[in-house]
Design a protein around this nucleic acid. Structure first.
Length: 390
DNA sequence: ATCAGACCTCC
DNA sequence: GAGGTCTGA
């Protein structure tokens, strides 16, 4: 039985690339809710599926370490010679036959290079995060304080399909439940990749699979609720009216054009569209605004947008996005994720080192407003009606 | 164009 | 009630 690897075990198949912690903090970047596909499988070790393969990542002060699991890992592989390991891994992957014939060491080093490129692309390591932090800190004192602790939070460049369908599931929902739903989705409809310590890893289901009419019912059985139909309908609409490469093609159009295109999909409003734009379509200026970010804009920035509103209307949404874009500039979405991360409950203990943050606002006012909302919501308890749309 | 209400579960 | 969206007024 295969196990999750750990760096300290000294397995030879670990590889590394230069990457200081200031450019990437794995725990924050993979744990802040932008992806639902990674788990901390050992201390500081993150295992997940990326680009159709299972990886374990960890980092030391100046290095990012990575290990790629073979689909049918040969038992002797880990102790074998390095290039042999890779040859075996590749043979399990069913790639081009032409390449398959040339298992020479020169080809291996090309593959080495390819894996590193995959990582550099996924983590967008060509974007110099330190420079961005410096800029955001210069224009925003509040950011500057947060940034002292929450370093290395960067946006991933995710697969657009996976990103879209994951965030369609995010409405009226919280991270842990979304993770469970995505787990079950992949487990049920995705291609199995490998099993490690009794944990089965599956690829994310491809578009044609999700578009099948039977998917809605299956997802409802998996606890997706009303999101089940959104997911299947969106997949179907893309397949029928756009084609398999459409999502990725949105990378080369302007931000607002891409966002509007996504909004035409069922279950995709401004928030989900912005998540997909920011996290998979190279739109660094997209700022996803949820109720949480709305609170931040009021509490930490005295942002007037929607201060008299009860709900996050489209207008308020756009005003808040513009506010932050105006403040932070063209990578506003990246900056937003740092603050978002800093507000997550799971990372609150990191903030104990920031004394200024404790007594800088008026919690009383915010509490009153929140109580108002709670009362309103208690009024609306009603029966559910069955929808009748085929 | 703008705003409540309903929508599915689970904690 | 939750990191929202769709729908009808």
């Amino acid at each position: 039985m295969s196990k999750h690897v750990v760096l300290s075990a000294g397995c030879k198949a670990w590889r590394s690339l230069s990457c200081p912690r200031s450019e990437l903090w794995l725990d924050l970047t993979l744990g802040c809710g932008q992806t639902f596909r990674w788990r901390e499988t050992a201390d500081g070790h993150w295992t997940g599926v990326m680009r159709g393969r299972v990886w374990t990542l960890t980092q030391t002060e100046n290095m990012l370490w990575y290990y790629v699991y073979g689909h049918q890992m040969n038992p002797g592989a880990e102790s074998g010679q390095k290039c042999k390991v890779k040859g075996e891994r590749r043979s399990g992957e069913m790639m081009d036959i032409k390449e398959e014939e040339e298992k020479t060491c020169t080809v291996m080093s090309d593959l080495d290079h390819k894996d590193e490129e995959l990582l550099r692309d996924y983590f967008q390591l060509d974007v110099k995060l330190e420079d961005l932090y410096r800029h955001w800190s210069a224009v925003d004192l509040h950011f500057k304080q947060i940034a002292n602790v929450f370093t290395g939070v960067r946006m991933l460049r995710q697969d657009p399909g996976e990103c879209l369908f994951s965030f369609i599931c995010s409405s009226n929902n919280h991270i842990s439940r979304i993770q469970g739903m995505i787990d079950r989705l992949c487990q049920t409809l995705g291609t199995p990749l490998c099993t490690l310590d009794d944990v089965a890893y599956h690829d994310f289901p491809p578009l044609p699979v999700l578009s099948d009419a039977s998917v809605e019912m299956r997802l409802r059985d998996l606890g997706f609720g009303y999101r089940a139909r959104f997911l299947q309908q969106s997949a179907q609409l893309i397949v029928n009216s756009h084609g398999p490469d459409w999502l990725k093609s949105l990378r080369s159009v302007a931000y607002l054009q891409a966002r509007d295109a996504l909004r035409a999909l069922p279950g995709v409003g401004l928030k989900v569209a912005d998540c997909v734009c920011l996290m998979s379509l190279d739109k660094a200026e997209a700022v996803p605004v949820d109720t949480h970010v709305w609170q931040i804009s009021k509490r930490d920035y005295n942002c007037a947008a929607g201060s008299s509103q009860k709900t996050l209307t489209d207008k308020v949404y756009k005003d808040i996005g513009d506010f932050f874009r105006n403040l932070w500039g063209s990578y506003a979405g990246w900056a937003h994720s740092v603050l978002f991360c800093a507000d997550l409950k799971r990372f609150q203990k990191l903030k104990e080192d920031i004394p200024v943050l404790k007594d800088e606002k008026e919690p009383k006012k915010i509490k009153e407003k929140r109580d108002d909302r709670d009362e309103e919501k208690q009024k609306k308890r009603k029966n559910s009606k069955k929808r009748q749309r085929t």
